[in-house]
Amino acid sequence: MMAQEGIHAGFPSPATDYMTQAIDLNKELVRHPAATFYGRVVGDSMIDAGVDEGDILVIDRSLDPRDGDMAVCFINGEFTLKYLKFRPHLELLPANDRYPAIVVREGDDFKIWGVVTYVIKKVR
C-alpha cells in the first residue's frame, strides 16, 4: 500500500540551501506586487523616449500620476502609452514628431490606468 504522511510545513527541498541573497529583479522592479501589471508596447509613438515595439512595460497602479510621468492610459477603447501633461489642461504627449498630442476632452472615455516605472527591452 501507499505510504501516506501528513506534512505540516512543506517538504524539504535540497535546493533550499542555495537560495540565499541573489539579486531578485522581481523585488527590485516590482515595488508593489499587488498593484503591478505588465503591458506590451505596440507601435512607435514613444520611440524618442527609447520605447520600441515589443518592449515590456512595468506598470504600478499604486502610484499617484504626476506631471511628466509616462503612463498607460485608456482612451476611447484603447490602451495608450504617453507622457502626462496636466497644465494648462490634460494632454497626452507622444515622443515622436509624427504623432500629435492628444487633448483629453470632457466626454472622452478616459482613465489613467497606471504609471510606468520600468521598460524592459530585449536586445538579443
Binding site: F37, Y38, G39, R40, V41, V42, G43, S45, I56, L57, V72, E78, F79, T80, L81
Partner: peptide, 8 residues
C-alpha cells in the same frame, strides 16, 4: 507574458 495588455 504572451497575453499581457497591448499598449499603443
Amino acid at each position: 507574458l504572451d497575453e499581457i495588455i497591448e499598449v499603443h
